[in-house]
């Protein structure tokens, strides 16, 4: 593992068997399916502000991503694939934020469009930082 904490390089150095790859695909597929459906259940129902609901999904999903990574680490790789890469990746969305940005900017509400971008970027990064810092401080991570 590099000093910057990025674990991807280590993951690639491990040799994966075909069954490992199949298990990984299945875990990510299942997590992505559940995460997407959960996001849709929050965003699609009428009466909920779509901007706020996407922001909520992104902030919650970002925090959960760090939490899942810390809890499962390398010891429970399929669970980490399911929860972090699959569920949190499917629960959060970048493309919808971009689409909303363009829709607001096109209708002349440029500051609102910028606010959507800024709120998602700042709150998601902050939620990751806070969970990460809490895990570092209290040392309850199972890395």
């Amino acid at each position: 593992m590099r000093a910057d904490g990025n674990i991807i390089g280590k993951m690639h150095s491990q040799k994966n068997t075909l069954s490992d790859v199949a298990a990984r695909i299945a875990a990510v597929f299942a997590g992505g399916a559940i995460g997407s459906a959960a996001r849709a259940a929050i965003v699609l129902p009428l009466g909920i502000n779509p901007l706020a609901s996407i922001l909520l999904c992104n902030v919650l999903g970002s925090a959960l991503y760090v939490f899942a990574g810390r809890i499962f680490g390398h010891k429970f790789r399929p669970l980490k694939d399911f929860a972090a890469t699959g569920f949190c990746g499917g629960f959060t969305t970048f493309s919808t934020v971009c689409k909303d940005f363009v829709l607001y900017a096109d209708s002349g509400e440029f500051f609102c469009a910028l606010g959507i971008f800024a709120a998602n970027l700042l709150l998601c990064t902050l939620s990751v930082h806070l969970i990460d810092a809490a895990a570092d401080k209290y040392g309850k991570a199972a890395r």
Binding site: D4, S36, R39, C88, F91
Partner: peptide
């Protein structure tokens, strides 16, 4: 709502930024 939104991610993006 399914494919395009799920193919993109804000969680990994914000995690990488925070790192």
């Amino acid at each position: 709502v399914g494919f395009s939104a799920s193919a993109s991610t804000f969680s990994a993006f914000s995690f990488q930024l925070a790192r």
